[in-house]
């Protein structure tokens, strides 16, 4: 009898392993950058086909080096994203962005990305009026266009190796 039970437990636990392996093939991930780009090719220079935002859930369809081809769940589109823009952490990153159909509990949503925020920064600035945020804002607006960067690389006889999956 006991032996029989052990067998059931063993099979059930093995089942969990295989379920996880199956989930791996079609895994759901979360966007962890403020604004992410879905690209036509696995490269930072690939044409942008759609945009995703912090906390969005995506489904991974294919992987090529560090790049993942993903689909956005509300059908906005498909495209390549660099793996560092995504996380497999289950906690939703931003409150109020969860959609029906995602398997996230209310508890996890509540736990998500509040904490140190714009409001906390505002409060800190009130008490530390000497701090220079003007240049933080200014440096964050410096934008380098893809064309500028391509020229910089070509003219300087440089390459972007390890971009992952570039033809």
């Amino acid at each position: 009898m006991f032996r029989h039970r052990s067998l059931i437990i063993c099979l059930a636990l093995l089942g969990v392993l295989f379920l996880n392996a199956a989930a791996e093939a079609q895994k759901s991930m979360t966007v962890q950058v403020r604004e992410g780009q879905l690209r036509a090719t696995p490269s930072h220079f690939g044409k942008i086909t759609a945009k995703t935002y912090y906390g969005d859930q995506v489904t991974v369809l294919e992987e090529k080096g560090d790049w993942k081809r993903v689909s956005v769940e509300d059908g906005k589109g498909q495209g390549w994203m660099h793996g560092s823009a995504l996380t497999s952490k289950r906690t939703v990153l931003k409150a109020g962005r969860s959609r029906a159909g995602t398997s996230v509990s209310q508890d996890e949503i509540a736990l998500a990305g509040k904490g140190f925020s714009e409001e906390v920064e505002k409060e800190y600035r009130k008490n530390n009026a000497n701090l220079d945020y003007a240049w933080i804002n200014r440096m964050e607006t410096i934008v380098i266009s893809p064309r500028q960067m391509e020229n910089f690389i070509e003219d300087g006889r440089l390459v972007l190796r390890n971009e992952g999956g570039r033809p």
Partner: peptide, 26 residues
């Protein structure tokens, strides 16, 4: 086991940067 989110790291980074800019001007 939960850790700070990337958004929180960003806000920490902004203020750390502001402190740096107070010691060294841009």
């Amino acid at each position: 086991l939960e850790d700070f989110t990337p958004e929180q790291e960003y806000y920490i980074g902004r203020t750390v940067g502001a402190v740096v800019l107070t010691k060294y001007g841009p």
